[in-house]
Computed example of a mutant assay.
Amino acid sequence: MKRTLSVLLTLAVFLCALSAQAADIKIGVLAKNGPAKVMKKWAATGEYLAAKLGKSVEIVPLGFDKVNPAIEANSVDFFLVNSSMFITAKVKFGASAVATMINSRQGKALKSFGGVIIASAYNDAINSIEDIKGKSFMAVKKSSFGGWQMAYKTIKDKGIDPFSDFASVDFAGKHDNVVFAIQNEVAQAGTVRTDTIERMVAAGAIAMEDFKVINKQTSDFPFVYSTTLYPEWPMAKTAATSDALAQEVAAALKAVKQDDAAAKKAKIIGWTDALDYGPVEDLQKALAVGAYAN
Rank of each mutant, 00 (worst) to 15 (best):
L8T: 04
S6T: 03
F166R: 03
I197E: 12
S128K: 02
F180N: 04
V13A: 03
I126S: 02
H175K: 11
N68G: 13
V76D: 03
F166I: 03
A12E: 08
W271F: 15
A266Y: 08
P69S: 14
G114V: 08
L283S: 06
A89M: 07
S6G: 00
I25D: 02
M1H: 07
A207W: 08
T228D: 15
K26I: 02
I25S: 06
D165V: 05
S6R: 06
I206V: 15
I117D: 05
P61Y: 06
G173H: 10
H175T: 15
R193Y: 05
A255G: 14
I102Y: 10
A51W: 14
A207L: 13
K2I: 06
W271E: 01
D176R: 09
A181I: 06
E248R: 02
D195F: 12
Y277C: 09
G278Q: 12
S19W: 12
A203F: 05
M200T: 02
Y225S: 01
M85N: 11
K108A: 13
T196E: 13
K142C: 00
V201I: 09
I132D: 02
A22Q: 02
V60I: 11
P162K: 04
G28W: 01
W42D: 08
R199F: 12
A293C: 02
I182C: 00
M200K: 12
A205Y: 13
